[in-house]
Write a protein that binds this DNA or RNA. Structure first.
Lengths: 189, 189
DNA sequence: AAAATAAATCAACACCATGTTGACGAAATA
DNA sequence: TATTTCGTCAACATGGTGTTGATTTATTTT
């Protein structure tokens, strides 16, 4: 067995919540260790027992989000969901709007979106390879960067603007845009 | 007449060059005023005579880039270049690769790309409105966010990776991707 | 050319977040 | 119960910050 010490679980929990609260108002680079600890009502020295920087704490939050929501994409071979794979990520984001707005939005860590981008790449590109076996995988990878960046921009706009568009409508537009965009691979080379 | 004092011109110039040098290795949020001044061999107190933060200095650099390269897009009505308007921005970036890699890349200010995005929006969308008078401008604005984000991602990838692709090939792919993507507007609503 | 104005330098200052330490009490574990 | 681990607290040196006043140098004005 050997569970983690409950004191440690508590400390990490309140530190995470404190950082998320602070991140509503400023970027991760502007957050100080002191204000996290003040917000969490935890001694500053305790912070250093678990993390070195606020960004370390943020990365832990990000990792937990991936473990709890997106980890199955690593073994994407086994699954057979309805709809595209980007649609799955979209569903995860819809189910965690508050959190995603913070960790993926303006005040989050840009590297985090890159991680997700690379996690999704194989499954997305595999689908396209089936659609277009005659075109180079290299070219489809190229298109993937384009489609992912565009899709994430629209999703973040939607989260930040509390858009009138329904989630289903947004999902459909993302699907259509991705469909048309990846047709461009025909004219590569 | 009344030119700016040459002492001021010199100070600002070396501070700008120093910041650009420092930004090759770290993000703007991690740059200290002290290291800028050390690099520029300028007294730290002098920095405060002209700027309050390193970001202020960066914004001045960004503004100069816009004034010298992209200002004419504000009065885009008058011009009649060959090719699309995104292609014009692409040309500017090609002509200033070193600078753009710094101020638009990973270590730059994310807000800067947003500024350019909004500068380019009217001319791009106007073109599309001509192509698709039957579709709502609102929808074409939507597609624009997607196309701009995707295009910028590919351009930055190209700058950062010193890609084997020629500039002309990249431009053609951007054109084709934008063309196909904006066809998706047909299926909106 | 001389006087007046503006800019840059320099030293000094208080301020604050940082990272670390050692001592102590409380909680968890064996 | 005995031991280990964790959180707290006070203290410290460090380093960047933002400001001040005095001084020197460069530019502009008269």
């Amino acid at each position: 067995m050997a569970f983690t010490d409950n004191r440690v679980r508590f400390t990490k929990m309140v530190l995470q919540q404190a950082l998320l609260k602070v991140l509503k108002n400023k970027r991760i680079d502007q957050v100080t260790i002191k204000e996290i600890c003040d917000e969490a009502q935890v001694n500053r020295g305790t912070f250093y027992l678990h993390y070195a920087t606020p960004n370390d704490l943020l990365m832990e939050i990000e990792q937990q989000f991936i473990d709890e929501n997106l980890a199955h994409f690593s073994s994407y071979m086994e699954k057979n969901y309805e709809g595209g794979h980007l649609a799955d990520v979209f569903r995860c984001i819809m189910e965690n709007q508050e959190l995603c707005l913070i960790i993926m939005g303006k005040n989050g860590n840009p590297r985090f979106l890159m991680r997700i981008q690379e996690m999704m790449r194989p499954s997305m590109v595999d689908d396209w390879v089936k659609d277009f076996p005659q075109y180079k995988r290299e070219h489809l990878n190229y298109v993937y960067d384009y489609v992912f960046a565009g899709s994430m921009r629209l999703i973040l706009n939607w989260l930040e603007n509390e858009n009138s568009l329904s989630a289903a409508d947004l999902a459909r537009r993302l699907d259509r845009l991705g469909h048309y965009a990846h047709l461009a691979v025909q004219e590569f080379d």
